[in-house]
Nucleic acid binder design. Structure first.
Length: 489
RNA sequence: GGGCCGCUAGCUCAAUCGGCAGAGCAACAGCCUUUUAAGCUGCAGGUUCAGGGUUCGAUUCCCUGGCGGCUCACCA
């Protein structure tokens, strides 16, 4: 069995061309290239009237228009596209013929020559020499319709990136968003840290984990569902402001807004509280929107959204009251709220607690209506095991989530730092677990021990980076802002 | 996990009621010295996702499975 036996008809044809080149003493995969300018630089400098003389450009050949003894070809590099003009009279009959025979769409080439404008005004390289840099054995996707099959786009992302330029721009924008976020946090005094992805106890969020096993230690380990508890321990250790941007893993459903691994930013500010985190959220939205789109007025699907601070804020109770005419502070027990929901014939799945019912009501009747950036505050205590209770109403916590265009982008609290209260919350979670809540927190004695040493009053925030990238690049599936989204095998 | 839709040439897509498997691009053999999805002539290209069933005959109808998409539920 030879390599060539693994190739289909089209690939074989192209592979034979590579062999032919080699027979002529031309290496189809040379180790080094010459490049005097990028394509973008070439265009820019030519338009400025600069005489560049002879240039040597490199790129992938993406189009080919030949009319007998001349050929127009397009090459693209990472910066742009430019047209090549190849003429038999310039290259010589033999070389020109070899070019026609052995160069294909998709090949990386190096072209040298001088610049001119065609009669239609297009900047073009009059090619004196063209060299193969890397022979493409497999053919490119079709040039006009491109590649649209989503499965191929995700599984062979390089093809998607190769032919769909707007896809490359989405990922450039994603990188600008991350860079802007880091720059903001860095200059605001937050220190970037790294905490364990493999954890003996998972925590910091309500979610189902992935489990793995360490052979030498002979124990189960979990992939982190959040960074929270490790980051807050650092504040016990006297760091004042920390953040981490990392992958979290949750063993749950996959859909347009959920993947099993996703990127989360978490930051914690000692001597801060909820209102400080609101400022951080507003600042991050501003910085990232400007980095991604250069404007605070953005389009997301059918919505026009203005990200200019200050963002609106509304209490969970008031928002639910307005949409459903249910006052969760009147029906402030599980049984009462359940009865009220049935009485009003609202469609809410069975839940295990008052707080989860509130969360469901909110998700079904309020969340989709929150288009302009809005902080929703005062979340039920039993679904907020790490948030400090409101001093004047222990049913709810000093917690907000930020909503834009009907979706959540971040979650923040005034962090719970009372070790006794935290211990009781863990116990409550264990009760929930016993009653069948697979997402309930496990008791984390080590974390309580840390709190016993004193966590300063702290504001903490988590933001979904993929979701933010979706919002700011107008993408409606998380798979379109993640280079290699998880698919079935 | 449930419901719905899809899977045909390398890519983008057709195929009427169940009756020989088709086109464009790409490729191949040619023509053509300023093209822009270049054009023209010719030629080739298939496990119709897989397996099973019904039928004289299945891309088409039925069943099972795989993969993908949308949606509902859950979660960020």
């Amino acid at each position: 069995m030879e390599f060539i036996d693994t190739l289909d008809t089209l690939e074989r044809e192209r592979f034979l061309k590579a062999l032919r080149l080699r027979e002529r003493g031309v290496e189809p995969y040379p180790p080094r290239v010459t490049r005097t300018h990028t394509i973008a630089e070439t265009r820019e400098q030519f338009e400025q009237g600069k005489d560049l003389g002879a240039v040597t450009l490199v790129g992938r050949m993406t189009a080919n228009r030949w009319t007998g003894k001349i050929t127009f070809a397009d090459i693209r590099d990472g910066t742009g596209r430019i047209q090549l003009f190849l003429r038999q009279d310039n290259l010589g009959a033999e070389t020109y013929k070899d070019f026609l025979k052995d160069f294909d769409l998709g090949d990386f080439v190096q072209a040298s020559g001088t610049l001119f404008k065609t009669k239609t005004g297009e900047i073009t390289v009059q090619v004196a020499e063209i060299i193969m840099l890397a022979k493409a054995v497999a053919p490119m996707p079709e040039k006009f319709h491109g590649l649209t099959d989503k499965e191929t786009r995700y599984r062979q992302r390089y093809l998607d990136l190769m032919v769909n330029e707007e896809v490359r721009e989405v990922f450039r924008a994603r990188q600008r968003i991350l860079t802007a976020m880091r720059a903001y946090l860095d200059r605001s005094g937050f220190i970037e840290v790294e905490t364990p992805a493999l954890q003996p106890l998972y925590g910091g969020a309500l979610a189902k984990p992935f489990t793995t096993y360490h052979n030498e230690l002979k124990r189960d380990l979990y992939l982190r569902i959040a960074d929270e508890l490790y980051l807050k321990r650092l504040l016990v250790g006297m760091f004042e402001r920390v953040y981490e941007i990392s992958k979290d893993f949750r063993n749950e459903g996959v859909d347009a807004t959920h993947l099993p691994e996703f990127t989360m930013m978490e930051c914690y500010q000692a001597f801060g509280d909820l209102s400080d985190m609101m400022k951080v959220v507003e600042d991050i939205f501003v910085e990232c929107a400007l980095a991604a789109q250069g404007a605070l007025q953005i389009t997301y699907g059918e919505h026009q959204v203005d990200l200019t601070p200050p963002f609106a804020r509304v209490a969970m109770r008031d928002a639910i009251l307005e949409k459903t005419e249910i006052d969760i502070y009147v029906d402030d027990t599980f049984d009462a709220l359940n009865a009220r929901i049935e009485e009003k014939h609202l469609r809410v799945e069975p839940q295990l607690s008052w707080g989860k019912l509130v969360e469901k009501l909110f998700g079904a009747y309020v969340e989709p209506t929150l288009i302009a950036p809005t902080f929703v505050i005062d979340f039920p205590t039993d679904i907020s095991p790490f948030a400090k209770k409101k001093p004047d109403d222990p049913r709810v916590t000093e917690r907000f989530e930020i909503y834009v265009a009907g979706a959540e982008y971040g979650n923040a609290f005034t962090e719970l730092n009372d070790p006794a209260d935290q211990w009781e919350r863990f116990m409550e979670q264990q009760g929930n677990r016993a009653r069948g809540d697979a997402e309930a927190q496990q008791m984390d004695d080590d974390y309580v021990q840390a709190l016993k040493h004193g966590l300063p009053p702290t504001g903490g925030l988590g933001m979904g980076v993929d979701r933010l990238a979706m919002l700011l690049t107008n993408q409606h599936s998380i798979r379109d802002v993640v280079l290699y989204p998880q698919l079935r095998n």
